[in-house]
Design a protein around this nucleic acid. Structure first.
Lengths: 123, 123
DNA sequence: TTGAAGCACTTTGAATTGTCAAGTATACTG
DNA sequence: CAGTATACTTGACAATTCAAAGTGCTTCAA
């Protein structure tokens, strides 16, 4: 009755969780502490961030290193598997650089957007 | 006062929206109608799906082609820019195949997961 | 020595999102 | 002529995310 295991599908399930890609992207630049990460990710509240990190930890993408409990000092960094998400982020980066531009207005109420140059506008 | 425009960041904002990656992946296999897409994406309710499609349309990743209004018949397909998300999906696919496996239990309450083979387990 | 700021979170209640079930008008199939 | 399909919309409800405040302890400046 149940579906078979599909890697891509599962990966998408994880990566589409809010903030996950941002977190990974940030950690690719190096290990960070909680607040540091929070700032670098920008706009994710601590409750959600903590939850995402737990998940990524469970999944084996991130490792949490408690350096001291009091005063608190923790480092989050990517595992080798996590590091390999670099390819995914790079692909997004390439796509974004090629197709995304600032664009203010949705330009049209209707869906008549694909400009001549094929650029994509954000709303 | 405001930040400058960062393509990757913006792209992530879009791609992390629930169902978006699934939708793109499905459309990469070819154009589909609404219900067809809904089925192939699996589990996304029509309200959300409609909303996501509108967004992707506005953004210029998807094009909506109404073939007839009544009885209704619509086709959704990727624009050239949308098609180039293939690279992103492929990267996810490669990562997933290399690092994801079925794994039931989180195996441990704590975050002690990175197995010797570096495989990642889903919870 | 006092005060402010930093650390890693947790808790709370409210706001935003996503989901479910049902419904619409029409056509095709058995 | 009942049943199925198409593409959605609506409204009520559930789940997720949010901002704000708080904790207990250290470190640094005044």
């Amino acid at each position: 009755m149940e579906h078979e295991f599909c890697p891509v599908h599962e990966a998408i399930q994880v990566l589409q969780e809010k903030w996950v890609l941002h977190i990974v992207r940030s950690l690719l630049e190096g290990p960070r502490g909680f607040n540091e990460l929070s700032r670098s990710v920008g706009g994710c509240n601590p409750a959600t961030l903590a939850q995402r990190l737990d998940r990524l930890c469970d999944i084996g993408v991130v490792r949490k290193e408690v350096q001291s409990v009091m005063p608190p000092r923790t480092l989050y960094h990517l595992t080798p598997a996590g590091h390999e998400l670099q390819d995914v982020i790079s692909a997004i980066d390439r796509w974004a650089s090629a197709h995304l531009r600032p664009g203010r207005e949705p330009s049209h109420p209707v869906c008549e957007n694909s400009a001549a140059d094929g650029a994509v506008r954000l709303t």
